[in-house]
Each structure stands twice: as C-alpha cells, then as structure tokens.
Amino acid sequence: MSRETALVTADWVEQHLDDPKVVIVEVDEDTTAYDKGHIRGAIKLDWTTDLQDQVRRDAVNKDQFAALLSERGVGNEDTVVLYGGNNNWFAAYAYWYFKLYGHQDVKLLDGGRKKWELDSRELVDEVPTREQTTFTAQDQDTDIRAFRDEVVEAIGVKNLIDVRSPDEYAGRLLAPAHLPQEQAQRAGHIPTAGNVPWSKAANDDGTFKSDEELKELYTQAGVDWGKDTIAYCRIGERSSHTWFVLHELLGEQSTKNYDGSWTEYGSLIGVPIVLGDEPGTAS
C-alpha cells in the first residue's frame, strides 16, 4: 500500500461524486454528524451499532459485516471512500474493518469531514438510496489484528505504540478529554510502549503529514523498523489511524491494531502497568 492507493484528496472526491463505482461512506464518533449534513451521495455507518457486535464485546463477524454492506448497497467491486469527524479516527477504524474482511479497494479522504468543512465544500441533507448487493466478506485477516495475549507477549519484544494523548499515557486521564472521565479500569500504559499520539501524524486540518515527516516521527520515538509493531489506544479507533499511517502510508506490513486497547488491557487482572511519562521496562 501507499499514499497513492490509500488516500484521496477532497478534490478527487468532488470529481467522483457521480461515479457509480465509488461509494462514499461517513463514519463518525458523533453518530448524529451525518444527519447534520454529509457529502452528496454518502451513506452512513454507525460504529456503535453497525461495527460492534450488539451482544458480545467484539467486532462484528464476517457474516454480520457481509450482511451490513449488502444491505447498504456496497459491492465487492466498488471503490469505498471513507471519511469522518475527529480527524478520521472512526473512518480509519472502518477502513481497518474493510481490510480485516478482505475488501482491498478502500481509501480515506485526507482530512476527513473537518477539512471538507473548513474548505466550505458542499454538504447535503438528502439520504441516498442504494440497491442491495451481495457482498462477500473474507475470513478475518489476523495479520492486522492483535489480541490481548499477543500484546502481553510483545512487552519488551515488539514495538508497542500507545497513540493516546500524553496525559492518558501517563495515567493522568482515563479517556480523551472531550469525554467524561468515569471508567472502571486502571490508568497508565503497557510497559515498554512508546507514546506517539496519533495527532502527531496529522496536520491541524486533519490531513496526514508527509511520508518523510511520518517516518521521522516514529524513528525519533524509538520505533525499531526491523521489529513487528502493535498500536493501541483506548478503544481501537485512534490506533486505527496510526495503523493506517504505518501499514498503509508507510507500507510497514508487520503492523497490527490492538482494538481491545486500553479498555481491555487496563481491566485485565495481573498484567503489568506503568504510570508516568516513561515507557518503563519489561521486567
């Protein structure tokens, strides 16, 4: 993967608004954002109901994902372009989902909804209707998904990148600062994890920094490019943003997203946790 295949500009999207093979999809943390106006022709995915199993705490499974996209009118031959608020956090999470289930022709709108709005580009209220398809999902590609046991074994062995804000990393906050802080689990970070906040990979307008800047960012943070990498955050959406940078923009194929992230790790009994601004040691 590369920037040319994984990312499109707002101009590109405007030029493809009427392209029948391009499906534009909005995914927001604020699930009502779409209803306040969206890119013409865009459909909506709701991460809380469409992309989370409603009983188990897990991603939707292959059959659920296939049924969802079929019902929304997304076909296996379509080019899917994702965008959303919060600098594309949840759009990147959905992007990771499409890759997880084997849909290769998927792209992110650089800058997401924010860049689109700051450019004063058109947003509409009309909700499009798309004919049902028969979308076929592949088995989960676990080369891009990390689970908790693998994360514990990765301490001191693989690159662990905590992409939350410095205050969440250090244990001074338990959640992003636009959310109430009440949580059940412990604060802190996984021992040996470096802190590279997702936001360092993006400009103020939400677009991604250049490949050279991104490579330098993670190199300076101590990432060993010869090792496998696991990115995590609180619930796996900001780390999808960093996974996108490493796996899709920089082509680091041995990069996984730990979608259980801190809400799972910080609730586990007996696992090591480090408080404060330093990564800590593996012992």
Binding site: K36, S165, L173, A177, H178
Partner: peptide
C-alpha cells in the same frame, strides 16, 4: 500537545472534560 478536539454545536458551543 494535542489532547482532544470537538466540533462546535449549532449554537457554537463546545466542552472538554480536562484535568
């Protein structure tokens, strides 16, 4: 360092739960 970001509401309002 960036910590959080919110879009304003239709009434221009924003809120953070900081430390």
């Amino acid at each position: 360092e960036f910590t959080a970001e919110v879009p304003t509401s239709v009434t221009g309002q924003f809120r953070f739960f900081a430390a």
